[in-house]
């Protein structure tokens, strides 16, 4: 149950996993940080024939993954990524987890260090429904994707799509691809202007690489 608690395993959440898997090249080396019960690892193994590894903070999640034959270790995104060598993976993936880390900036730096690419998906706090609840209701937002009240949520570092792009710029990371998904899990048109993506996107998936390019 603790596994990937941040976003419930609804159909819309699955869409981000499928989207991520499509960003991964066949046969790549992949580290999924916050891999939960291993759903993404399984998709990647089955459809992309990758060398897939996982890190998961909940021991229950880890044990389930290993019993299913996945290579997963218990670990904390905030502290344990430092153990991995530079460029150890083709992709370091952080799916629906960054907002639950203590040091998102540090974690993102680590992703870009240990992976040639980083793939990050997160709930967009700039979504109109969330803005609306805050502006008109004056209460912390509760949505289908973020159903846990403020006093119990593991999500401690929310950001909007714009915020995330700003952080990427600050770290000198280049955005190779970004996709916003609407509340129904449908990818928005690539041509949609950023302010629209930030308003309509319920979640976003970013494919990043280290800055040089």
């Amino acid at each position: 149950m603790e596994a990937r608690p941040v976003i419930p395993a609804t159909d819309t959440a699955r869409v981000d996993l499928l989207l991520i898997s499509q960003m991964v090249e066949t046969g790549a080396r992949v580290l999924d940080i916050g891999c939960g019960d291993g759903a993404l690892l399984r998709i990647l193994t089955e459809t992309r024939n990758v060398d897939a590894r996982g890190v998961e903070i909940s021991q229950t999640g880890v044990n389930q993954c290993v019993a299913r034959g996945l290579s997963v270790v218990q670990g904390d995104a905030d502290t344990d990524l430092a153990n991995y060598p530079d460029g150890a993976f083709d992709y370091a993936i952080l799916s629906q987890t960054i907002q639950a880390t203590h040091r998102p900036r540090h974690v993102l730096e680590q992703l870009l260090r240990i992976g040639r690419h980083a793939i990050v998906s997160f709930p967009n706090f700039g979504h109109w429904r969330i803005r609306g609840q805050l502006v008109f209701g004056g209460r912390m937002p509760l949505t289908e994707n973020l159903p846990v009240p403020w006093y119990e949520t593991p999500n401690i570092h929310f950001c909007t799509i714009k915020d995330f792009i700003a952080l990427c710029n600050e770290l000198g990371a280049s955005v190779e691809r970004s996709v916003a998904l609407n509340a129904y899990g449908k990818p928005m048109a690539f041509s949609a202007p950023l302010f629209m993506q930030n308003l309509i996107g319920a979640q976003a998936v970013f494919l990043l690489s280290r800055g040089e390019s």
Binding site: V62, V66, V73, Y84
Partner: peptide, 10 residues
């Protein structure tokens, strides 16, 4: 992990 080995830990 430091040598990026394939490892599971339970």
């Amino acid at each position: 992990n430091a040598v990026a080995a394939n490892v599971s830990f339970v």
